[in-house]
Computed example of a mutant assay.
Amino acid sequence: MKIKRALVSVSDKTGVVEFARKLHAAGVEIVSTGGTMRAIKEAGIPVMYVSDVTGFPEIMDGRVKTLNPYIHGGILAVRDNPEHVASMKEHKITPIDLVVVNLYPFKETIAKPDVTLAEAIENIDIGGPAMIRAAAKNFKFVTVVTNPKRYDEVAEAIIKDGCTSGMLRMQLAQEAFAHTAEYDDCIQNYLKQQISK
């Protein structure tokens, strides 16, 4: 499956501009959100704002921006299922072939000595894990990257072959589920500590 469209939305922006530059050079269209989009745009790399894909603005202080059928339909569609393909066509959903997401810094936030419960809660990522899990579930067709250390390897594969191998996609999916599992475990541990105070 040739990678034509990527959704890039990261809290940790390490290496993301250079990665976006390589994706653009390989002919990949980039869709992005908020701060990530600004960083990519300021580097002179063409990028599409997620609201232009969804037809809906980011709302509720950014709590709702990617939770939308134009995003999740694009990620979850089974590309060799005629009914899924027909649904995409009917609803004008463009496939998303690469999902590059890492999560709000919950662990770092709760490590601050004076953090409030409200601040901690606002650093619980919702859209990020949803996109990561959707892409990881559909690894047969979609590449998911949660670790910036994987950017070079993924970019090289796309530049060389236009796509990633099935084994690499499965490895990245396993890493993605480990990433969200660790994230959720951190949140539930924090809440458990608040209850027992």
Results as ranks from 00 to 15, higher is better:
Leu76Ser: 05
Ser196Tyr: 11
Met1Asp: 01
Lys22Trp: 00
Asn138Tyr: 13
Met1Asn: 00
Pro129Ile: 03
Gly62Leu: 13
Ile126Asn: 05
Met37Arg: 14
Thr66Lys: 08
Leu76Asn: 12
Asn147Lys: 15
Pro69Val: 05
Ser165Pro: 12
Ala25His: 02
Leu7Ile: 11
Asn189Ile: 12
Asn102Phe: 03
Leu103Glu: 13
Asn147Ser: 14
Phe106Ser: 01
Met37Ile: 09
Ala43Ser: 09
Ile195Glu: 11
Pro57Thr: 05
Ala176Cys: 11
Ser87Met: 13
Lys92Val: 07
Gln193Ile: 12
Thr14Ala: 04
Lys137Asn: 15
Thr164Tyr: 07
Thr143Ile: 13
Pro69Ser: 03
Ile45Thr: 07
Ile124Arg: 03
Val17Met: 00
Arg150Asn: 13
Leu168Pro: 08
Arg38His: 14
Met37Tyr: 08
Ala155Gln: 14
Tyr49Cys: 08
Gly35Trp: 08
Ala111Phe: 13
Gly44Asn: 06
Gln193Arg: 15
Met60Cys: 10
Ile30Ala: 02
Ala130Leu: 12
Val144Lys: 04
Val145Glu: 09
Lys197Tyr: 05
Gly73Leu: 06
Thr180Asn: 02
Gln194Val: 05
Ala181Cys: 07
Ile30Lys: 04
Ile75Thr: 02
Pro129Asp: 02
Asn123Tyr: 12
Tyr104Trp: 15
Val64Lys: 11
Glu58Phe: 10
Ile3Glu: 00
Ile110Lys: 10
Ser87Trp: 12
Val64Tyr: 11
Met60Asn: 10
Asn123Gln: 11
Val8Gln: 00
Glu58Tyr: 09
Ser9Leu: 01
Glu182Leu: 06
Ile195Thr: 08
Gly15Leu: 00
Met1Gly: 01
Gly127Arg: 08
Ala111Val: 13
Gly44Lys: 08
Gly44Thr: 07
Val8Ile: 09
Asn123Met: 10
Gly127Pro: 11
Met48Arg: 14
Met48Phe: 06
Ala111Tyr: 14
Ile93Lys: 04
Glu58Pro: 08
Ile59Ala: 10
Phe139Ile: 07
Ala155Arg: 13
Cys186Pro: 06
Thr180Gly: 01
Val85Tyr: 07
Glu122Ser: 15
Glu119Val: 05
Val50Phe: 05
Ser32Cys: 05
Pro95Met: 01
Ala118Cys: 12
Gly166Ile: 14
Ala111Thr: 12
Thr180Ala: 01
Lys2Arg: 07
Tyr190Ser: 00
Asn189Pro: 06
Tyr49Thr: 07
Pro148Gln: 08
Val85Trp: 06
Glu90Met: 14
Gly128Arg: 14
Val53Lys: 01
Glu119Gln: 13
Cys186Lys: 14
Ala173Met: 05
Glu119Asp: 11
Val17Gln: 00
Thr54Gln: 04
Ala77Gly: 09
Asp97Tyr: 08
Gly162Lys: 12
Asn81Gly: 05
Glu58Met: 06
His72Met: 04
Asp52Asn: 13
Val10Met: 00
Ile45Glu: 04
Pro148Met: 03
Lys192Pro: 03
Lys65Pro: 05
Phe56Gln: 13
Ala6Cys: 00
